[in-house]
Design a protein around this nucleic acid. Structure first.
Lengths: 200, 200
DNA sequence: TTGCAATGCGGACCCGGGGTCCGTATCGTC
DNA sequence: GACGATACGGACCCCGGGTCCGCATTGCAA
């Protein structure tokens, strides 16, 4: 009912804008130095068009981000192990976190831009909710683990875009090292499930 | 040599500005809606004075933040246990993290404002470096724990201002609950030191 | 007390970027 | 080919961070 098929030039412009924005963000040190006018110009489009299509800056970035995230989302929702739903929690949790980390490594600019919008916290984004809920439920199914809700938040916090950027970008930690570190950290927590903590 | 004693009105204005800024940040939902002009007006001071005293917006916020942080810093550097240097790592690490969390709970507005400046990541701030180095060294002294550097980052990430705000502010998690959750999480990691993870 | 640098004050001003508006061009249909 | 609906684009507005410079205060010295 509220479904109006969009005009052809609209879709083309939308695609052009996304491509241009992606390129610009990828080629800049800080997402802040990419202005909306830049993107419009690079896409060969007027600013009005850009704002009509995405609402505002955050909308544009979010659209880019989710487009990139799509394959991973699918792999998680209905893919083969170790990411897919048929995997037991003890293997799936590390796989999920590694997927998130890998994604942020591959899309540093986007993740940074998204978290850096500043209008509201990244925790209100729906994709964060999804990741968190999934992780929490998996953790809850692991016997011996308590505080799955907070633990899920904490694990995801270890993959925050600016932390990844700081370690991989600024400090020069190699990709595989970072993955190993996160895997080790995750394993530490999961291992504790079998030898429950005594808060002495 | 480069030490010039400041004029009296300068110190008074500086103090007035800090007080006004603190009050304004405390009374607003989002730090973004407090403008420099607002602060200047509330302090009964011109914008020029404000920028002369603190350099820029980040400088002001940082000054506020560090002033508030001072007592904790001292307690950590040369205070009694469990925060002081005489405490063995297994007790001091949880104490430190709880202190950080408590501080952020008590100064949500400041912490949010500081992380939200957006000009560069919170990981470049010197106080972050201090916390991280201290935590890392403590963790390194715990036998059986590996990856102390990353673990320190991850633990601190669990106390990020916007996460705290999301849980305590938006989701309404009570203060004591949050502290317990973080304590539990920390304990989980420390406990794993005695029963090392087998990354099967 | 008065003179005189030096230091600080303040608010008018600038600038750059996000977001809007509306006359005009394009699309798609009849 | 014509005409309503839809989208375009860039001039325009607004607002906030940061600057500048003529003027006031301070503090030292005579």
């Amino acid at each position: 009912m509220t479904e109006r098929k969009p005009r052809k030039d609209a879709v083309r412009n939308r695609a052009a804008t996304l491509a241009a924005a992606d390129a610009l963000f990828a080629g800049c040190r800080s997402p802040e130095e990419v202005t909306m006018a830049d993107i419009a110009a690079a896409a060969g489009v007027g600013k009005g068009t850009l704002f009509r299509a995405f609402g505002d800056r955050t909308g544009l970035i979010r659209a880019l981000y989710e487009a990139r995230l799509e394959p991973i989302r699918k792999a998680v929702e209905a893919g083969p192990p170790p990411l897919g739903p048929a995997t037991p929690p003890l293997q799936r949790v590390p796989a999920l976190l590694d997927a998130v980390l890998t994604f942020k490594l591959d899309n540093r600019h986007l993740a940074l831009a998204l978290e850096g919008t500043g209008d509201d916290s990244p925790y209100r984004a729906e994709h964060y909710e999804r990741w968190h809920a999934l992780l929490r439920d998996l953790l809850a199914r692991i016997p011996g683990l308590t505080g799955s809700d907070f633990t899920a938040h904490a694990l995801l916090a270890a993959t925050r875009a600016d932390l990844v950027e700081h370690l991989a970008g600024h400090k020069g930690v190699p990709r595989e090292d970072l993955r190993r570190q996160l895997a080790g950290f995750t394993a530490t927590i999961l291992a504790a499930a079998r030898a429950p903590a005594t808060m002495d």
